[in-house]
Amino acid sequence: MGRAHVVHDATQSRWTFIVGEHFVAAVPAGTDPAVVAALNERASRTVTVEELVSLIPLGGEGAVASFALVVAGAPSDGDGIPVSGVVRGDVVVDVYSVGGSRRFSDRGIRPWLLADFRAVTAIVIAEDGSGVPRPAEIGTGEPVGRGPSMAARLDWQPGEPPAVEVGGRSDAEVRSPPDAGAAPVGDTVHRPRRLAEHDTVLRPRRHELTPDAAAGEPVPAAEPQVEPAPEQRPMAERQPVTQPTDEQHPEPGPRPRFGLRIGQGDERELDAVYLIGRRPRLGRVPAVGEHVRLVDVPSPSREVSATHVEIRREGDVVVVTDQRSTNGTFIVPPHADRIRLRPGQSMVVSVGTMVHIGDGTIVTISALEDSRELSTDPPTTRRPRT
């Protein structure tokens, strides 16, 4: 799990920190206990950052305006471990590596900002505006074990020997954290060029239009343009890719399968990116690897935009993105209030969520069992005009 310590400071806002086997989370004090319990219930599991995000309500009663989530990956070298992080609101994450530190904040991006880092030796989560701790100051607070605790700051050193419960002492508790060397520590410290391979990992999407989505031959796929790499990207712009390693790790259990039902139609597997609307079309050339299905829906009152909503699978979750529709996209999670997406906004949704796009058309998200039989008829599709 690593070592976790909390620092108490009466002058700063207090946070509830949840320490898991492979992750740490921070939510404001006073957050709905059900949310804290849901995060804590996964403390002993291997989880993804997307799974944790899906547990935090972003709208309606009990919405969490600020939070931070950091999930550790499997060690890949001797200089630290890879981590994925999500931040939103008045919280910052300081990420330490052998070359120094960098501050990770949401920069006003909504619904949240997600980034991947490699070769991480320590993580500090605290209130936005707080100072950046020096490496020697990390891990000097009160040691805590797995579960929730309240404090002003959390220090986490993933990959280190397990933390001890409050009130206990161990040799691991008093050992000094790894020194970051001579690199200065500030809001953002870039690593030396020789360590550039440890910087934030950018993961471009790879897409391709399937033949059945085009009702004919596939659109020729173009290689994605290589852009100057920003250190952080919104979640909707990030797609995990497998990094080759010398060591073969066992495959996790079977991935969940998701389905969707459009209106009163048959339930279908969410095995592609669905663009749904009155007359949907591609707004860009798909990149290599992405399969797209264009689905027409009736809209007598023209409440549904031509290309209204995108529904896709991202890892082990489902993401719904409004395509800057005229009349809006409404998300109705199970047992929760209706949420209206802002134009272009993305949201992770759970099984049982209903997506309202207008003129009575509702898209329902479901979970599929391997034994379930699905309709083999393709959805109504149309080749986009170019």
Rank of each mutant, 00 (worst) to 15 (best):
G2L: 10
G2E: 08
A4L: 06
A10T: 11
Q12C: 12
S13L: 10
R14L: 12
W15I: 02
F17E: 01
F17D: 05
I18Y: 11
H22V: 11
A25P: 06
G30V: 00
V35K: 04
V36W: 00
R45G: 06
V47S: 09
V49S: 14
L55M: 12
V64G: 08
S66A: 14
P82G: 01
P82C: 02
R88N: 09
G89T: 00
G99W: 01
G99S: 14
S101A: 13
I109H: 08
I109G: 06
L113K: 14
A115L: 03
A119R: 11
T121P: 01
A122T: 07
I123G: 09
D128M: 13
G129S: 06
P135Q: 01
E137I: 00
G141K: 03
P143G: 03
R146Q: 15
D155Q: 03
Q157F: 02
P158S: 04
G159D: 03
G159M: 05
G159I: 07
E165H: 10
G167I: 06
S170I: 04
S170C: 09
P177C: 01
D179Y: 07
V185Y: 02
G186V: 03
T188P: 00
T188Q: 08
H190I: 15
R194M: 09
A196G: 10
H198Q: 13
R203A: 15
G216Q: 02
V219N: 09
P220C: 05
A221Y: 04
A221Q: 09
P224D: 08
P224M: 04
Q225L: 15
Q232H: 14
R233D: 12
A236I: 11
Q239F: 10
V241K: 08
D246S: 09
Q248V: 13
H249S: 10
P256I: 07
G259Q: 02
L260K: 02
L260N: 03
R261I: 00
Q264W: 05
L270M: 03
Y274W: 15
L275K: 04
R281P: 00
A287R: 10
H291L: 11
L294M: 06
D296H: 11
S299Y: 06
S299V: 02
R302H: 13
R302W: 09
H308S: 01
R312F: 00
G315V: 05
G315I: 07
V319T: 10
T321E: 07
S325E: 06
T326M: 14
F330Y: 14
F330W: 13
P333K: 04
A336K: 03
R338G: 04
P343W: 07
V351L: 05
V351E: 14
M354P: 00
I362S: 08
I362C: 08
V363Q: 01
I365A: 06
A367L: 12
L368D: 08
E369L: 15
R372A: 12
S375N: 10
R382M: 12
